[in-house]
């Protein structure tokens, strides 16, 4: 775990950070940025989830951070190892970037969100804030010292949740 600077999370990747570090991921579209944090421990994790279910995998090699159902358990293990106990979650992303309807993949944003929320529910982690859906990309940055999630978009500026 890195401290003291910005930890970058790539697509289909996850990581955790402790205050005074911050953690960010860029260009979420239909992917969902999942932040799980413990404010007392000033500890937070972020996953850039691309697909809802690891059972969708057709190959033999799978990157576990890619799927909602595998990323969240891994992140929970990491956070507990670092002393996290009482968790909350914030979510962003799950947009629909293109408007057509023929393909099941088109609804991937909402399906990702659904899968993430189911995992969080199984862990008993409340989602305290979210900025999801729509048709715009998002870059998000989480600060574990105060629990704010900053969301940047191309046309709607910056907001915090």
């Amino acid at each position: 775990m890195k401290r003291d600077h910005v930890v970058k999370v790539g697509i289909a990747d996850l990581n955790i950070v402790q205050d005074p570090g911050i953690i960010r991921t860029s260009g979420l579209g239909s992917c969902v940025g999942v932040v799980i944090y413990d404010l007392r421990a000033k500890l937070g994790g972020m996953a850039h989830v691309m697909l809802p279910d690891s059972r969708l995998a057709k190959g033999d090699q799978i990157k576990l951070a890619k799927y909602a159902d595998t990323a969240i358990p891994i992140m929970m293990d990491l956070l507990r190892e670092e002393g996290g106990k009482s968790f909350k979650a914030k979510l962003a992303g799950g947009a629909q970037m293109f408007q057509f309807s023929s393909n099941d993949m088109m609804r991937i944003g909402p399906r990702n969100l659904e899968a993430v929320k189911k995992q969080l529910k199984d862990y008993g982690i409340p989602v305290v804030a979210e900025d999801c859906g729509g048709s715009n990309g998002r870059t998000i940055e989480f600060n574990p010292s105060n629990g704010t999630l900053q969301i940047r978009t191309v046309n709607k500026g910056v907001r915090e949740i």
Partner: peptide, 22 residues
């Protein structure tokens, strides 16, 4: 057509193959 961030747009085109490869 989409006018937005590279990641948000291109990740969409990776969904199909991401089920097979990394």
């Amino acid at each position: 057509i989409a006018i937005d961030m590279v990641g948000a747009i291109l990740s969409y085109g990776l969904l199909e193959l991401s089920q097979v490869n990394d």
